[in-house]
Amino acid sequence: MPEILVQYEAQIWQAIGETFIMVGVSILAAVLLGLPVGTLLYLCRKGNLLENRVAFSTLNLLVNIIRSFPFLLLVVFLIPFTRLIIGTAIGTAAATVPLAIIAIAHYSRLVEQTLLDVPKGVLEAAVSMGASVRSVIFKFLYVEARSGLVVGLTTSIISFISYSTIMGVVGGGGIGDFAIRFGYQQFKTELMMYMIVIMVIFVQIIQFTGMTVARMIDKR
């Protein structure tokens, strides 16, 4: 192993751990909240099962606003909110708050788009069989959209990694922050390059895994 990596091994592992926490929380937020929000966006849209103009416009606007923020400004803007729920605005835990929020907005949009591609006729058949809205969602909609949902999540996770790299501004740490502070600011270009390589490897693994899973579960 190159000497410089050995020298900084402890810090590198810590940075990787921080990135994992930040991206992990983002993924959880995307799945637990982004998926339902995206599903609601889809269902409340005109002509769909829970058509509701007010709900749709409100959610749509909210998601758009969050997504229009340059991410760095969103992080700063959310500082009071972060302090409210975490108790501090500094550190890895605090960094997960803006990440979770952008994750929800980001993935919900991809979920909505994926669901829009499900043939309407399948849902119509479900309704004609007497399916409740809940059954339509879980037994038809998600089943038919599942590979798209996985592809969307893959794309989202890669964006989350990218977002996480700037969390150094609030002391969130992570690989990106490490690369900037040690590699760039201390003129250790070699170290910075190694960090970039690590990120490239992560992204490759995630992209490959995501696409493989999506292909395996797609029977269409």
């Binding site: 043939p119 006729g121 399948v122 119509e124 058949a125 038809f140 089943v143 038919e144 599942r146 590979s147 579960i217 797609d218 029977k219 269409r220």
Partner: peptide
């Protein structure tokens, strides 16, 4: 239905 509307997955 004309388009069968089976769940492809």
């Amino acid at each position: 239905f004309q388009g069968f509307n089976l769940v492809a997955n």
